[in-house]
């Protein structure tokens, strides 16, 4: 005969206590794990969250959206800005050419881009990266971007690289949500409000032309360029990809891009290739132009040439 030992009242009490303790710990850990969510401020308004794809918006919806974004910029940055939208114009195909013989590597283009396009100030971001290259070499891998001496240095030449606005753009193909596309005039744009920040495009670009907003751009109200375009230089949200857009808020109004205006030597030539009399057309017809990484078949509309 075996006697079953009745559970002692102290045992069940201890078990209950243990259970409660573990439950409390678990709840605590869960709360701790979720606490960043409680601290996080909403990165977008409800209207922003519900906003449709740029290409599917009506003119009225776009207008309302620009108004909202202007108000948000006022609230976040304290600056009065106007956000506009300039569609690609028929009969215009933009192209850019750069004379490597007269570029001196001063990075003024890079600086102009930084200011024109409302880039994050602390990180010194710009869509243009100037490579210091060895004369006689075309090896981009050996290009140095962080040179800090008087230019032009002996034995070097300088190659500014920005978005090449490829006709066959790998970045556009990889986007899983169609947040980036090529417009009729050849400019590859990004809808910053549609981008999910996966950075596939950044990885796909052979020219290292795309940038990711790791944090919300910091920029003083006085330094903000108030003339903004929805698909171009408006202040980008955190967590999205951005890139050079040939200053479409300027160029689609007939103006020259900011980087060209800043160039002290006139190394940059910009214009409409469909215009037979344009400067860019003359350069393409008369200079021995080449494109970067031609073998990849990206068909850039950014050309380089040497005078001699």
């Amino acid at each position: 005969m075996t006697a079953t030992t009745p559970a002692l009242p102290e045992d069940s009490a201890r078990r209950g206590l243990l259970k409660a303790g573990v439950a409390l710990l678990g709840a605590g850990a869960f709360a701790r794990a979720l606490s960043p969510l409680l601290d996080a401020k909403p990165i977008t308004s409800l209207a922003g969250f519900l906003q449709g794809h740029y290409k599917e918006l009506t003119t009225i919806e776009k207008k309302a959206m620009f108004k909202r974004l202007e108000a948000e910029t006022k609230k976040d940055y304290g600056a009065d800005v106007t956000i506009g939208d300039w569609p690609a114009e028929p009969g215009v195909q933009f192209a850019y050419a750069l004379n490597l013989s007269i570029c001196i590597g001063c990075r003024k283009c890079s600086e102009a881009c930084h200011e024109e396009n409302n880039h994050d100030r602390p990180s010194g971001n710009s869509y243009i990266r100037v490579l210091e290259m060895e004369q006689g070499s075309m090896d981009l891998e050996r290009g140095n971007t962080t040179y800090d001496h008087a230019v032009p240095a002996p034995g070097k030449y300088y190659m500014p690289v920005q978005c090449q606005q490829c006709e066959n753009a790998p970045c556009v193909k990889v986007c899983p949500v169609e947040a980036t596309w090529q417009e009729q005039d050849g400019i590859v744009v990004v809808d910053y409000n549609w981008c999910i920040g996966c950075r596939y495009c950044e990885a796909a670009c052979p020219y290292h032309a795309r940038r990711f907003n790791w944090k919300k751009p910091e920029i003083a109200a006085a330094e903000i360029n108030p003339n903004q375009g929805y698909l171009s230089n408006r202040i980008r949200p955190q967590g999205v990809v951005e890139k050079c857009h040939f200053c479409l808020h300027r160029t689609r109004q007939g103006r020259l891009p900011a980087c060209l205006e800043a160039c002290p030597t006139g190394a940059r030539v910009f214009g409409n290739v469909l215009d037979q009399d344009s400067e860019i057309r003359w350069v393409l017809n008369n200079k021995r132009v080449f494109v970067l990484k031609e073998e990849l078949g990206t068909r850039p509309r950014f050309f380089y040439f040497f005078d001699k």
Binding site: R107, S110, T146, D148
Partner: peptide, 13 residues
């Protein structure tokens, strides 16, 4: 052409 001090040196994160 006079030599220049370059501006806006890129910063590495």
């Amino acid at each position: 052409f006079q030599s220049y001090a370059p501006v806006l040196k890129p910063r590495d994160r």
